[in-house]
Design a protein around this nucleic acid. Structure first.
Lengths: 247, 247
DNA sequence: GCGCTTATCTGATGTAGATCATGGAACATC
DNA sequence: GATGTTCCATGATCTACATCAGATAAGCGC
C-alpha cells in the first residue's frame, strides 16, 4: 500500500487580492445562476456584488447576526455550522465555489448558523435587498436559485434520514461518498477527497464523536476500501461503501 | 388533571367532492404564493391545476416514482416519509394546507421520498412543466416559492442539528414545540396539537423507537408539562419544554 | 356494560457508541 | 534530525437508548 509522506490534498485558492473586478465577472459568468444573462445584464449584476477574502478559520458571519447579506463562494471551501449549547457543533454543509449561502428569504431574519472559511476563501457578497432586486428583474435567475435551493433541501432530507436511522458506519460511508462526488479527484490511489478532512470534522458532519469516526475510518482502511492519513481520505473502493448503504 | 374520554383532536376536512373548481380558486387565493396575482391571472393559474382527494393512509406518490408533479395541500395533513431499508422509516415533514411538495426543480428526477395522506386530504396538483411556466410568467410567485423553500431548508437544518447532537428528550421536546407552533390550538387544557399523533409517529419524527417516545412522553406528563392520551398531545407548559432545549 | 382491537406503558436485558485515558505517528520548526 | 505540537489510534469503561416481552388501558361495536 503506497504510503504517502504528506497530505496529498491540494486546494487551488486564488490569492485574496486576485478576487477583484474582472476576475469576479469571470466567476459570476461561470455560476449556473447567471448562465441565462446577457453580457450587459451580467455586468450590471456584477456591480451589485462586492467581494471579500477570508483566512482559514475566519468566520464570514455568526449564528444570530442579522441576516442581511447573501454570499457566493468564489474560491475555497466554506463550512456551514450550527453551534450547539454543549460546545459540540454540527456541520450542516460544506460549500464549494459556485454555491451560495446566507440570507435568502424576503424578510431578514438572524442567520440560523455560522459560516466559517475552511481554506482561504474568496466570497462574493450582495445585500439581501440587491439580491431580491436581481431576482425580480431576472426571473430566469430566480428559477435557477430555486433549483439550487430545492437540491439543497433534498440533500438536507438525505442527512435527516441518515441521522435518524443509520449506524455510525453508514453515516460515515455516506458522507465519504458524498464528499467524494462533490470534491473527489481521480488519483493513482483512488478518488482523493480534495479538502482537509480531519476526524473531528468528519465527526461534526456525521453526528458521532471523533473517536468513533477514527475507529470507523480505521476499519474501512483495514477492509481496503479507503486510504487515509492525517487530514485526508481517498476512496479506493466506492462500490464497497455504497454496498454498505444498500444493505 | 382533567381526563379526556376520547381524542380531542378535530381535523376539519372538506369532503373530497367539495374540492372542486371555485372552492379550489378560493384555496389558491389563500395561498401566500399567489397573493400578488390579479384575479384574472389567478384564474389562469387555477386552470393549470387539477385536484385530487386521498384517504388516510393513501400514498400520493412513492419514493422512486418519476417526479413530474408538484402538489399543494388544500385540506388535511400529508406526511413526507423517507423509507429506510430496515423497515423503519423517517418522517421528514408534516405538511398542512398551503404547503407544497413533490417535484420542484427544472430537471425531473425521481421523488426522493413518499407522500402519504395522514387524514383525508385534498391536494392540488400541477405538472412540473406547467408549474415552471407559471413561475416564468409570474416572478413574484417564484420569489415566494423561493422564500418558502428557503424556510423549509432552515427547518431541515434545525432537524439535522437536533438529530446530530441531542438526546431523545430534547428531540421530542423540540418536535412537540414545533408541532405546537404549527398545529396548535388553544384549549382549556393547553395548546392542543391538532393532528393525530401516535407514539410511532413521534418516533418516526425524532429518530427514536416508539418505546423511547412513550417513556419520554410519560415523563413529560409526570412533570406536568404536557397532557396526553391515545393519539394526542397537548402542551400545558411550553416554557418548560423550551427551557429543556436551552440548557 | 362486555368483549375485542389496537395503542400505550413499563420492565428486563443487550449493545452501539460516548467518554475517559494514553500511547504513538505525522508534520513543522529550527 | 532533534524537538515540540497537533492529530490520530486504540483500549477500558460507562450509559442512553434499542430491543424483547408482557401487562394495561383506551376506544369501539354490540
Amino acid at each position: 500500500m503506497g504510503k504517502r509522506r504528506k497530505s496529498p490534498v491540494e486546494i487551488v485558492t486564488t490569492d485574496v487580492h486576485m478576487c477583484s473586478l474582472d476576475v469576479r465577472l469571470r466567476i459570476l459568468r461561470r455560476l449556473p445562476f447567471f448562465h441565462d444573462l446577457s453580457e450587459s445584464d451580467l455586468e450590471r449584476v456584477n456591480r451589485r456584488f462586492h467581494e471579500h477574502g477570508f483566512e482559514p478559520g475566519q468566520f464570514l458571519y455568526l449564528a444570530g447576526d442579522p441576516g442581511e447579506r447573501m454570499f457566493v463562494v468564489a474560491e475555497g471551501r466554506v463550512r456551514l455550522l450550527r453551534p450547539s449549547s454543549g460546545g459540540r457543533q454540527v456541520m450542516l454543509d460544506l460549500l464549494i465555489p459556485g454555491e451560495f449561502f446566507g440570507a435568502l428569504g424576503s424578510d431578514p431574519q438572524p442567520y440560523p448558523d455560522s459560516a466559517q472559511a475552511q481554506t482561504n476563501v474568496c466570497a462574493l457578497v450582495i445585500s439581501l435587498e440587491d439580491f431580491r432586486a436581481v431576482l425580480q428583474e431576472h426571473p430566469a435567475v430566480a428559477l435557477r436559485v430555486l433549483d439550487a435551493t430545492a437540491a439543497r433541501l433534498r440533500d438536507a432530507h438525505d442527512s435527516i434520514h441518515l441521522l435518524g436511522a443509520a449506524s455510525a458506519e453508514r453515516r460515515i460511508a455516506h458522507v465519504l461518498l458524498k464528499l467524494g462526488r462533490k470534491l473527489g479527484r481521480a488519483d493513482e490511489t483512488g478518488l482523493l477527497i480534495q479538502t482537509p478532512l480531519g476526524r473531528d470534522e468528519l465527526a461534526e458532519m456525521t453526528g458521532v464523536t471523533p473517536e468513533t469516526a477514527s475507529r470507523v475510518i480505521s476499519q474501512f482502511q483495514k477492509e481496503g476500501w479507503i486510504d487515509t492519513g492525517r487530514q485526508w481520505v481517498a476512496l479506493k473502493d466506492s462500490f464497497a461503501l455504497e454496498n454498505l448503504l444498500a444493505n
